[in-house]
Write a protein that binds this DNA or RNA. Structure first.
Lengths: 216, 216
DNA sequence: TAGATTGTTAATCGATTAACAATC
DNA sequence: TAGATTGTTAATCGATTAACAATC
């Protein structure tokens, strides 16, 4: 499903959500065409980079005119796979897990939250955003019986790799990892790290070194 | 306070927390020396890159020997500014704000959580990890009266830029931004984005395109 | 001493920017 | 048509990797 792209670098992929975000803003403002130059002013990438990026996926623009906002938005939506639906489970229904589930607009991105899992009995029977919390021991059975694409890990360090292994064995194709642990995963399983600790340490570096050096 | 480094690229800065993390593991295992080659095996960067990175900050190694783990750990701790203490406030004490505060080990990184702020009266008087929750209107007064280095933004989209402005006017030097909004900030104010939405869209791209293309 | 491994320079690789012909 | 702006090639810039002399 969808076209196959080659030669798409990580740098480009990480910029795609930004294009999507700003094109949405243009749609909301009823603007129906945009040039790489104008988009550059909004988004902060150079016009040249914008044209290079978009061209990796196909010629969406028109010489002398620019890009049709609606069309481009739709194309990037497809490239990001947002025209499809993915089912998702969250492991760890503690403070962070609940915070993320409540905060992220899963439905709006085509994600279907099926269940949460936790080791604490006090959570059992509770529902978050309509999804039930089950006991952790039922994780593998649940994933095997329901097709699950993505597992989100929001739990304490110690059991993270073990949980990741269970998710992978049961057949998820991606893990969104909020723990500070670097996961081992076989080729073909996608791991996207949201390491909050690393973020905090980077912030510490900048605050500590602000005024002392200029980062290029 | 601390040395001044020049020519430190963003790429290097983002690797520093990884060095710190793996050196901590070595200390916990009572390993007192490490070569760039061994560290490479653990951490996944090339030996050459590790030596280049570390040399930007000074010659911490010894020919024929490698690096002393304790010394290197201490140096990176200083480079990251973890030998200093920063005071911090969190704006938005909802599900995500509470989740982050409960999850992140602020004290252990030298961060001193002073207070949270929210618009909802139901939170007033509550404490999270020992820090009180105040009404949002008191934000500026509080920051002016207490020296605050960092503001963490964990609130709904609409008031984010407004809140950032208040934080900046009151004198914080950095903002850790968990909202999906790109903040305008004057030169000198550090903004570190933890855009969860972008993370989810990137994940969607990979899941959607898995097996179709190879990312370089 | 001989072996190991750093610090550092040079070579390579990849990503960004500039330029411009094609064309709407 | 004239002006604008893309698509795309070429030039530049920066980051990573390789190589090796210095030296512990």
């Amino acid at each position: 499903m969808g076209k196959s792209y080659s030669n798409v670098s990580m740098a480009i992929i990480r910029r795609l959500p930004k294009y999507y975000e700003y094109l949405k803003q243009l749609i909301d403002k009823n603007i129906d065409r945009i040039s790489s130059k104008e988009l550059s002013r909004m988004i902060g990438f150079t016009p040249s980079q914008i044209r290079q990026d978009l061209n990796k996926f196909g010629g969406f623009g028109q010489q002398g005119y620019g890009y049709n906002v609606e069309v481009l938005y739709g194309e990037i939506e497809k490239i990001l796979g947002l025209n499809q639906s993915y089912s998702i489970v969250v492991v760890g229904a503690g403070s962070l897990g609940q915070g993320i589930v409540n905060h992220i607009d899963f439905e709006n991105c085509g994600f279907d939250l099926k269940a949460l899992f936790d080791i604490k009995y006090k959570f059992m029977g509770k529902k978050i955003k309509g999804a039930p919390i089950f006991y952790i021991d039922e994780l593998q059975k649940f994933i095997s019986e329901n097709h699950i694409d993505i597992g989100v890990i929001c739990m304490p360090e110690e059991f993270v790799q073990d949980t990741a292994n269970k998710l992978i064995e049961s057949g998820v194709s991606a893990i969104w990892n909020f723990s500070p642990i670097d996961l081992d995963a076989p080729e073909g399983v996608i791991v996207e790290n949201m390491n909050l600790n690393n973020g905090l340490l980077t912030l510490s570096y900048f605050v500590s070194n602000s005024g002392k050096d200029q980062v290029k």
